[in-house]
Each structure stands twice: as structure tokens, then as C-alpha cells.
Nucleic acid binder design. Structure first.
Length: 438
RNA sequence: GCCCUCAUCGUCUAGCGGCUAGGACAGCGGGUUCUCAACUCGUUAACCGGGGUUCGAUUCCCCGUGAGGGCGCCA
């Protein structure tokens, strides 16, 4: 068996979306699984809708998701060029072959392909035998002289020696046009694998560029982790056949195969993606987590002119890491670490003041601060426990009002970590301010 | 309208003739003598319908129904 050659062939006529990304991913996975070649080919024959900006978006998104291509723009290869807009000489040559075989005719200024009308049968790697008969001749060159998708797509697959065509099910009905052309050129058919489509999370139909949450760029901007998005995409239409879900990409590559792909469409579920992202985020090593967070906060311009010191920011980020689902949550989660100007949640305040003597407890805590050891969470925990024991109170009697006073909110990271990271001065000052105004 | 594909919890899926139909997300309930969006334990919830084939169908076949896609001088 010769080497597997697959291609991802996007057209730069719109933003890069989830469905395209997964098609690319399945091609990439299959290439890596088989030790084959992953080709990137740009289908930019629609000159009125192409844009260089969209093309760059595709390159960037593929790289961000970790899908490196072996042949294609920027890399080269033996079967280039890899942009269809630069391959007109090749199309002309193939067109001549069709003309010479008497398989074309002109009408209304456009060039039509004469179909055979024979039933076209493919053995789809995912769906099995699929038969369809093409009924009408179709245009292969527009009246403006530009060849159309069906023609260039097949010509390039022949010329680039593509062995497996892995694409969305929306192309299944088009396949009879393509096999007609392959046969007209006397070329062997590739192995087809039509993967199920991704349906929009709400409402009918497949996901499109216009749908909420459809764009890859959006997840990048929102601080999602590419590994999480890739893992999620792998599970949309494919599974390892056991109960594992969070899988390293190497493991997916090892297990991935065409017959293991589902036949039915899958609905996109952002909640599950969010959960997957959280799993990856919580597992990040401290250095990586901090680096990602700092970069993300800078892009978001969260601190404006006054960027905090790295050492302090790092403590804050690592303290909050186990509590957030996405870096997107970070700005709203850490504000009070960097500003004394935060609002006190009124509901939480009522709850705190509804029982016991919160002001007395806070007073005791403030009094203990000058001698407290702020070096470790454990030392601070011991302090609060000692305080509680000696005053016949519970640790919660200190923690709840103190958390509210220090952060304004009833939810947040570990309390002792909160004390440690804020530090003695901030804690003292904030508690005193709270007591003075409460 | 014609053609193609698909059909297990709300969602993603495991199952490839005999299972108490499993897992995950979401939901719900409890725990966590520090909250919680984190963690943890538990729990609700599914084989689209009708015919066959078979000793036996979620599983195989047919017909409905439903869902999705294609039928461009878009890709």
C-alpha cells in the first residue's frame, strides 16, 4: 500500500469555523495515524469572494490548533503550487484532455461536461456502499473563463495523488459528479470518507459561520486552550470506544481510524467544551498557566497602564487556577487583588450580618494580624483555628465576614491563600476599613 | 419536487443477536467543621413507530416517521 495522502481544502471566503476545523482535524489525524502526508490546498477560485485576510485566518487557526501541514502554502512540496489561483496551466492541460476525448461542449459561453449517466458507486469508508446516478451535464468552466469547484477539486486530487478524500457529508451527493470526472480522466478513484456534520446547538440545520460559537478565532480570543478545543472536536463524531474522554493528542493519533467515525450528525455543545477546557486548564503546569494568563490579560488590556508585578500576578493566577473554567473567567475573578475599589455584595453582606457577631470576630482577627505568619496557607489556617478555639467560635465565623470584607464577594479562591497572597498590609487595611464603615 | 445520508438519556457517546443498556456534559440532591463557578458522592433520564427474520432483537431486513444534506456559471 502506497503512502496515504490526504488534503484539507478550504476556501478563504469566510471566517474559519468549527466544522471546517474538524474536517481538517480528521484529515490531519488520519495522516498522522498512517504516517501519511497532510496537504493544505487553498481553493480560491471564487475571485469575487476571496480575501487574503480570511486566508491568513485559516493559516493562523490551523497553527494554533497544532495542525501542521506537510505540503502546502509556505511549506512547498512536489505537487505545487498549492493555491488554485496559481494552477491555471494545470487546469488548462486537463481541460484539453477532456476536450480531446469529446467530453465537453459549449453552451451560453460556459463549458459543460458530458456525463456518462452510469450509476456511480463508491465504497465510503464510513458509510459503506453508496450509489447515486448523476443526471445532468454540469458546468466545469464559467463563461468568464474560470473553472468551477467540481472540476478543479478533482483535477487537483488527481494531480496531487490524493489517496483519501475525507470531507463533510454535505459533499456526499456531489461525489457522483466527481467520480464521473475521475473516470473521464482514466484516474483511479480515491477512497472516500464522508464525515457527519456538526449541527448548531440551538435550532435546525448545520452549523454555519454565522452561528453563535462557530468561529475558531472566537475561542482563541476568549482564552480557550487549543488542546481542549482539539480534544472536544475529536469527540464530535469519533470516540476511543472506551470511557475515556480527556485524551492526549498522541493517544488519539494512535487510535484514530476511518471506520471508527460515526455516521450521524452531532450537535455542538458549548457546555461540554467548557468542561473540557476546565480540565485542561486545571492540569496546566504553574509556569505555563501563568504565562498564558499574563498573555491573555495583556491582550484584554485588563490592567491598562499599570501592569502588576509578575511575582504578585503569578501568585494570584495560581491561587485562582483551580477555580476557573476558562481564562475568560479570570478578569472578573481577580479584580480585587489589584484594586481596593471593589463593591461589597449586598446579599452576601446581609447573610453575614444575619447571625453571630461578625464585627467582633473581625476585630479579633485584626488584632491577631501583626504577629501572624503569612508565609504559608497552613500557618494562616492554624491561626484562624486557634482564634476560633479561644473565643468559642467556628472558623466560618471569621472566614465568611473576612472574605466579604477582603474581596466584596462570597465566592473566591481558598481563604487562607487569599490572605497569604493579599499580604498582611492589604488584609489589615481592608479589614479596618470594612469595620469602620460597616 | 427529485436524490443521498442518518436515527440509544436534553447533549456527546459505548453497545456490533441474549447486558440490571455503560460513561461524560448539563440537571437535581448530599458532602466538603472556608465560600464557590472548584472538588467529591449520589441521582433523574434513552434504544422513534410498525412490520418482518430469529428460540431471542437496541443490534439484521423492509416500510413509515423524524432529522440532516445535495440538486448554482458558490465552495
Amino acid at each position: 500500500m502506497s503512502q496515504v495522502r490526504v488534503r484539507f481544502a478550504p476556501s478563504p471566503t469566510g471566517f474559519f469555523h468549527i466544522g471546517s476545523a474538524r474536517t481538517a482535524l480528521f484529515n490531519w489525524l488520519y495522516a498522522r495515524h498512517t504516517g501519511g502526508v497532510f496537504i493544505l490546498r487553498v481553493e480560491d477560485t471564487d475571485q469575487t469572494r476571496n480575501s487574503e485576510e480570511f486566508l491568513n485566518l485559516i493559516y493562523n487557526s490551523l497553527r494554533w490548533l497544532g495542525m501542521n501541514w506537510d505540503e502546502g502554502p509556505g511549506i512547498g512540496g512536489d505537487f505545487g503550487p498549492y493555491r488554485q489561483s496559481e494552477r491555471s496551466a494545470i487546469y488548462k492541460e486537463y481541460l484539453e484532455r477532456l476536450k480531446a476525448a469529446g467530453r465537453t461542449y459549449e453552451k451560453d459561453g460556459a463549458l459543460f461536461f458530458k456525463i456518462s449517466g452510469e450509476p456511480q458507486v463508491i465504497e465510503d469508508a464510513i458509510r459503506g456502499r453508496v450509489e447515486r446516478t448523476e443526471e445532468k451535464d454540469f458546468v466545469i468552466v464559467r463563461s468568464d473563463g474560470n473553472p468551477v469547484f467540481h472540476f478543479v477539486n478533482v483535477v487537483d486530487d488527481i494531480a496531487m495523488k490524493v489517496t483519501h478524500v475525507i470531507r463533510g457529508e454535505d459533499h456526499l451527493s456531489n461525489t457522483s459528479k466527481h467520480t464521473e470526472l475521475f473516470k473521464a480522466f482514466g484516474a483511479p478513484l480515491p477512497i472516500y470518507a464522508h464525515i457527519p456534520l456538526i449541527l448548531k446547538q440551538n435550532g435546525p440545520g448545520k452549523m454555519s459561520k454565522r452561528d453563535q460559537g462557530a468561529l475558531i478565532e472566537e475561542y482563541q480570543n476568549r482564552g480557550f486552550l487549543p488542546e481542549a478545543l482539539v480534544n472536544f472536536l475529536c469527540l464530535l463524531g469519533w470516540s476511543p470506544k472506551d470511557d475515556r474522554e480527556k485524551l492526549p493528542i498522541e493517544e488519539v493519533i494512535r487510535l484514530f481510524d476511518l471506520p471508527g467515525i460515526n455516521q450521524s450528525n452531532a450537535r455542538f455543545d458549548e457546555k461540554k467544551l467548557s468542561h473540557m477546557n476546565m480540565g485542561y486548564l486545571h492540569a496546566m503546569a504553574p509556569d505555563a498557566c501563568f504565562a498564558f494568563a499574563r498573555d491573555f490579560l495583556a491582550k484584554r488590556k485588563v490592567f491598562g497602564e499599570n501592569a502588576p508585578e509578575d511575582a504578585y500576578l503569578r501568585e494570584v493566577v495560581l491561587l485562582c487556577q483551580p477555580k476557573i473554567r476558562s481564562f475568560e473567567d479570570l478578569p472578573g475573578f481577580i479584580g480585587y487583588f489589584f484594586s481596593d475599589d471593589y463593591a461589597i455584595d449586598q446579599k452576601a453582606r446581609e447573610k453575614v450580618f444575619s447571625k453571630g457577631d461578625p464585627k467582633v470576630r473581625l476585630g479579633e482577627l485584626v488584632a491577631a494580624l501583626p504577629a501572624a505568619d503569612f508565609a504559608t496557607d497552613a500557618a494562616l489556617e492554624a491561626l484562624v483555628q486557634q482564634l476560633a478555639a479561644s473565643h468559642g467560635a467556628s472558623t466560618g465565623d471569621y472566614i465568611h465576614p473576612a472574605r466579604l470584607a477582603l474581596s466584596g464577594t462570597p465566592v473566591g479562591p481558598s481563604f487562607y491563600g487569599l490572605l497569604r497572597v493579599l499580604g498582611r498590609d492589604r488584609v489589615t487595611q481592608r479589614l479596618q476599613r470594612f469595620l469602620a464603615t460597616a
